[in-house]
């Protein structure tokens, strides 16, 4: 039998954790409990974060949005600021798992699981999300790209917790999108995904562009050279194909039970075509 603890705030969380240094943290459970069931991990104590008040809320000050780590995907989906200003994150939440998975799984869980297939990750990469990590001794801000460094591998130090995700709200004129290919429409792990962030001038030419791919490497991947190709250009089939060619050479996909590497490589390029205006 495992102990299950419910700290109500961060202070309680630290003291419980200090008393049980081997404890595992439970956010939404959609990943941790699957791993416990298959005995990929074993735990004696579980610290359940669902009541830790500092991790819950979504706030905005007009320039930035602060998303508590325990925000679940449904809350993300329903948040008006996310919907109107962070289109790619909203779209990612909409195709993540399934309704009950979205009611349980959290953005913090998705980030800390650090799967290259995590649906919220490519959007957070192009949004250049910063993560606030807290520990008993203080807090620090880490960009998401530096936080995740391999499948399941994060920069979390011992006794450190992801408190919230901080995103600069894009100014008007910025478009963001998320596109995913999975093996079915819901309940699907992405085979390849793409988030994009584009600043468009009134004449349709691209200013800053950011592109991030999921499921085609050990982490979500961005390529400055590919993004640079778009600078100053108008979106066309031609330029998207050029970007796709370059990106598909740079990704490092694997073959697994869901898809082959070559196919993922081709999707890397082809998903860009979806950025063509209708």
């Amino acid at each position: 039998m495992k102990k299950v603890l419910f700290p109500l705030n961060v202070e309680e969380m630290w003291s419980m954790w200090q008393d049980n240094p081997e404890a595992g943290l439970l956010a939404g459970g959609t990943d941790l409990l699957v791993k416990l069931r298959s005995q990929r991990i074993r735990l004696k104590t579980i610290i359940c974060l669902e009541k830790v008040k500092e991790l819950q809320q979504i706030n905005t000050d007009g320039a930035q949005i602060f998303i508590g780590a325990m925000t679940n995907h449904q809350q993300l989906l329903e948040n008006q600021v996310v919907k109107s200003r962070l289109g790619c994150l909203h779209q990612a939440a909409a195709v993540l798992g399934s309704p009950p998975i979205r009611h349980m799984g959290t953005i913090g869980g998705n980030i800390c699981t650090a799967s290259p297939a995590g649906d919220t990750l490519p959007p957070l990469y192009v949004l250049q999300a910063n993560l606030e990590l807290v520990s008993p001794t203080g807090s620090r801000i880490v960009p998401i790209e530096e936080f995740i460094y391999g499948p399941g591998k994060t920069a979390l130090a011992p006794m450190e917790v992801l408190k919230q995700v901080i995103i600069d709200l894009p100014v008007p004129g910025i478009q963001t999108h998320y596109h995913k290919v999975g093996q079915r429409k819901a309940l699907a792990i992405s085979v390849c995904s793409l988030a994009c962030y584009m600043q468009l001038a009134p004449d349709g030419s691209v200013g800053e562009a950011r592109l991030a791919w999921g499921s085609v490497g050990p982490t979500v991947m961005r390529f400055p050279e590919v993004e640079a190709l778009l600078y100053g250009r108008k979106i066309s089939l031609d330029i998207l194909r050029q970007c796709g060619e370059l990106a598909s050479q740079k990704v490092t996909p694997i073959s697994d039970v869901r898809a082959g590497a070559e196919y993922r490589r081709r999707l890397t390029a082809n998903l860009l075509i979806r950025l063509l205006p209708d």
């Binding site: 299950v4 419910f6 959609t30 409990l33 699957v34 998975i101 349980m104």
Partner: peptide
């Protein structure tokens, strides 16, 4: 919610 991914204490 999915009761297979929830613990009694929750």
């Amino acid at each position: 919610k999915l009761s297979c991914l929830m613990l009694a204490a929750q």
